[in-house]
Nucleic acid binder design. Structure first.
Lengths: 139, 139
DNA sequence: CCCTAAACTTGATTCATTCCAGAATAGTGG
DNA sequence: CCACTATTCTGGAATGAATCAAGTTTAGGG
C-alpha cells in the first residue's frame, strides 16, 4: 500500500492537518477530479472545511510534489496522487474523462527536442486527445 | 506569401468581414498572443470592433482550421496561424513566452500509445516546459 | 503547557470567457 | 442593381474558477 497521508506530509515537512489528510484520501480514491469535486469529497467526512482550505491544500501538496496538477485545455484543473513516474493522459473530447497512459517511447523521450530557440527544457508534457469507450459507443 | 485572408475565408466558406480580416492579419504578425492582445492589435486599425466579435471570430477561425488555439496550463488561451503541420511548443515557466518546436520524433510519433484504456486517440499534443533565453540569462 | 508561525474560515474580488438582445451587414436570389 | 435573411457584430450583463484579504484557529517545537 502507499504510505499513509500522515507519513507523506511529515516527509515533506508539512503540518499534518485534517483538511490535508482528507484531500489526500479523496484523491487516492478518485484520480483526475477537479477542485469542486475534491471539495465535495472532503466535505462528505468533514463538512466544515472551506473551499479556500482545499485550494490552499492542493497548492501546498502540489508544490511539495505529493500531488500532480493537470490542466487539459478547456477544462478546469484536475489533480492526482500518482506522481514521479512521468506518465501522460488521454482526454475524451466529448465527456472530458481522463485516463493514465504510460510513457510510450520509453522514458522522457521528447526531451530530445532540446534545440528549441535556446530554451532550457526541463519537462515534456504529453496530452492525447480522443474519444473514450463510453462516448464512442453511442455514436 | 501566405494566401491573403479573404481567400482563406472564402475557401472555408466563411463570410469575409472586417473583424475577421483584422484578426487574421494581427495573428500573422504576432504568433502566440492571447485574446486580449488580439483585441488591442485589431483595435489599432479598427477601433470599433467589440471584444465579443474577437472571441467569436477566433472561435470561427479555430473551427475552420485557419487558426490554432493553444492553452498552456495556467495561462489564458493563445492563438497562432501556423496550422496543419503538427508542431509543438516550448513554454517559459517564468515569463510565459512561447516558441514553436518542430515535432521531434518525426511525424505524429506519440500516437503509438494507442492502447489507452479503449480510447480512440486522434491527436497527441506536446508541451515542453523550461526557461527562455532571456529569463535564464538573468538568474 | 505556551507560544508563534502556519493553516483555516468567511466573504469579497478579479478576470477570462460566455450569454443575451438588438443593430448591422454579407452575399444570395430576384 | 436592389431587397431579403441568416449570419455576424455591438454593447452590456452574467458566469464561474480561482485569488486576495482580514481575522481566528491550531500544529507542534520549546
Amino acid at each position: 500500500m502507499t504510505p499513509d497521508g500522515e507519513a507523506q506530509l511529515r516527509a515533506a515537512s508539512l503540518r499534518v492537518t485534517r483538511p490535508r489528510l482528507a484531500v489526500l484520501t479523496a484523491l487516492r480514491g478518485h484520480p483526475h477530479v477537479d477542485t469542486d469535486t475534491v471539495i465535495s469529497l472532503v466535505r462528505a467526512d468533514h463538512p466544515t472545511v472551506s473551499h479556500q482550505a482545499v485550494y490552499d491544500v492542493l497548492r501546498a501538496l502540489t508544490n511539495a510534489g505529493l500531488v500532480r496538477r493537470i490542466e487539459p485545455a478547456g477544462a478546469t484543473a484536475r489533480y492526482e496522487t500518482r506522481t514521479s513516474d512521468n506518465h501522460h493522459h488521454v482526454v475524451c473530447r466529448s465527456c472530458g474523462a481522463i485516463a493514465d497512459v504510460d510513457c510510450a517511447v520509453g522514458h522522457a523521450p521528447c526531451l530530445t527536442a532540446s534545440h528549441g530557440h535556446g530554451f532550457v527544457i526541463d519537462e515534456a508534457e504529453v496530452v492525447y486527445w480522443g474519444t473514450c469507450p463510453d462516448c464512442s459507443e453511442g455514436s
